[in-house]
Amino acid sequence: MPSQKPIRVIRAKQPLSIWIKQLWQRRETLWFFVWKDLKVQYQKPIFGLLWSVFQPLIYFAVILSVIRFSGRTTSETQLPFELYLLCGLAIWNFTTSVILGGINSMQSNAGLITKASFPRLYLILSPLIKSMFDLVIVLAIIVVTAMAMQVQIPLLFPVYLFLSILLVLPVSFGFACISAAFIVWNRHFRHAVPILLYATLFVLPIFYSMDKIENQWLRFFYHFNPIAGAMEVLRNGFNPFYWNLNPMLAWSASSIFVLIVGTFFFRRTEQTLADKI
């Protein structure tokens, strides 16, 4: 039955419709990428778990000690500071691991890119899905900490949690795509990306509150920063009636904007990926 055989057309420019169709058709390969990463990490389950939460917990311990020992006040936040910090770090850790995971997987799979055909976006998506697993574990730690500190967890908390993930997901994905595209364009950028990412640890309201910031430009920056937004939404989950989420629309819009720009960049690079990498 020749009419049933798939017909594939090879052209200089792949139409967007086919690109999306392949993204869906080959999804099994994406699961295999994710499954491989998880299986390799969780071969020794204790270590697997440890590596998932290692970075946020180390940062948590360091920042908390620095602030405590330097005698800084931690009372400016609505939540207990430990919880406040953990929420910020959970989101920050997720974003950085999506971006770093994306560029690492582009590099470590350079051999695959020149030898096999599969939607290249999977190289960004599979570390993203894996980072989501890690995020779930960190969130579980947050919930346990909240219970231990006798902070009440409102019924609406899951809704806020969901909103927060919804905010941070597109922007992380978008930045991962943009970074990957930059690195393909000029591989020296791979040294710059981690440095810039670690700088954001201080730029984002992780261990301070953005309510206290008076500078107009900084406030503007936070109001259009969906990562800061996701942190704020997550923290609000513990206190749903204290609403300071007015920039929600701006956060969502900029998150979607980064997603679109990132996808666009990635698709542009994808066409020449096998030639350049």
């Binding site: 017909i7 594939r8 057309v9 090879i10 052209r11 200089a12 020149t114 030898k115 066409q271 030639d275």
Partner: peptide, 13 residues
């Protein structure tokens, strides 16, 4: 489909 052509076309059935 590993790399894309600069011009021209191919069809695989």
């Amino acid at each position: 489909d590993v790399a894309f052509p600069t011009s021209g076309e191919a069809k695989v059935v």
